[in-house]
Design a protein around this nucleic acid. Structure first.
Lengths: 226, 226
DNA sequence: TTGCGTATTGACCATACGGTCAATAGCATG
DNA sequence: CATGCTATTGACCGTATGGTCAATACGCAA
């Protein structure tokens, strides 16, 4: 009713913000994307719902039309950002023929390549470290979907190397060896998280050292030094 | 003046909270301790000044008598919690005689022992990962006081091993080799941060695998397999 | 063109939090 | 016991934030 009194053509009076109706299937990922940026930059506690809304170019209230609370949005963001991370690597690895040590080198190369780019994964990793004990689902996800799968991949490769005679037989049965094998990549990722791209140890050099140390450590020895 | 009207013996009326005056030298570390607990548990953004006050058993306002702001308290907390971390290890290492590989094993054992206990250091590490880009001082500290010193220690040891003929000559000059050598301990620490004591890879097993892989990777080979 | 379902807004609320400050009381000194 | 310094309190403030809701207008279907 009031609005009848102000039919002026200028934008000010009721100032209905440009409103573009979107289907939920289109709006949801948009919000999730904005939320990811906000959470990645500020952490869970520091993130503001208004910030998410601004990034998405919508009103804050609309978020609550799609997600019931901040924590729900956080979990949803995390699940969404957590796409099929390993399928590609898993598929790729075992098609490469040749000596197992070359396959292992290839696998490690893929891992470092991801670390080098993959801004997204790094932000996700930071969130896991920072919020894991407040959101157990993050920890569960990392254990089941990241660490276990990566370790499984490496473990299979170690077995293959032993079978082919390239690696020392002991490496097939040593517990946590797979974790030790991939640890330098994880550490490199963490260092880069803390120190930033410019101050962290150079990933290429780390990869080279890692690979050298690793292959020398796994290989059968002509005459076991005692 | 008003209090003259209510000289009742019961605790309620003016209810001056039990007030114990403390010298600043005694109060300051108390506040810092409480702040550390609060920041460690909630992160910077999630921590509340009132929470710090409660933990310290004081009024919130008193904190501002000692620290001008939340961020100043955070930095001070960090500096205080960051005591002489490496002196002991550095002093200890080079007195041990014997083969360099035994010294290296000893060094690594010390590192894992710290990781296993050292709840404090782990919380500090989490804060670094979570807040490093908002507080550059944390990153600077980690680089200069932790990573550089640890890498220097390892690097010196690698040189010694080459000099004594135990290690392959190449290891003395490979960039980032020191970082690769100590990486599994770092990764183990991160895994324990994310997954907790019970779900993380077992530190003892990781240490054993790490050491085995490392010493095999560094040792001179009887006949270099090509 | 009309009508309807709902995506979207913006104003609003209660609260929580960082920070301030005048008043107060513990303690050392004389 | 009186005095002064300051450590300590608790009430207070402005703001920012998570969350709510009635009103609104977009776009589809009839």
């Amino acid at each position: 009713m009031v609005q009848h009194e102000i039919p002026s053509r200028d934008e000010t009076p009721p100032r209905t913000g440009a409103r573009r109706r979107l289907a939920p299937e289109a709006r949801t990922p948009q919000i999730l994307e904005a939320a990811f940026a906000e959470f990645a930059e500020r952490g869970y506690a520091g993130a503001r719902m208004a910030g998410v809304a601004t990034r998405a170019g919508i009103a804050k209230g609309l978020i609550y039309h799609y997600f019931p609370s901040k924590s729900a949005l956080f979990l949803a963001t995390f699940r969404a950002a957590t796409g099929p991370a390993f399928e590609a690597a898993e598929r790729r690895i075992f098609v490469t023929g040749g000596p197992v040590r070359a396959m292992l080198a290839d696998l490690i190369g893929v891992a470092y390549a991801r670390l080098r780019e993959a801004e997204r994964e790094r932000a996700l990793f930071r969130l896991m470290v920072a919020e894991a004990d407040r959101f157990p689902e993050l920890a569960r996800f990392y254990r089941e979907e990241v660490l276990s799968r990566a370790a499984g991949l490496v473990h299979a490769m170690l077995h293959a190397g032993v079978a082919s005679g390239e690696f020392r037989p002991e490496v097939a049965e040593m517990p946590c060896l797979a974790e030790a094998v991939m640890a330098p990549a994880v550490a490199g990722s963490v260092w880069r998280l803390i120190l930033g791209k410019d101050d962290a140890p150079d990933l290429a050099a780390l990869q080279a050292a890692h690979l050298d140390l690793l292959l020398a450590g796994l290989a059968v020895r002509q005459a076991p030094a005692r």
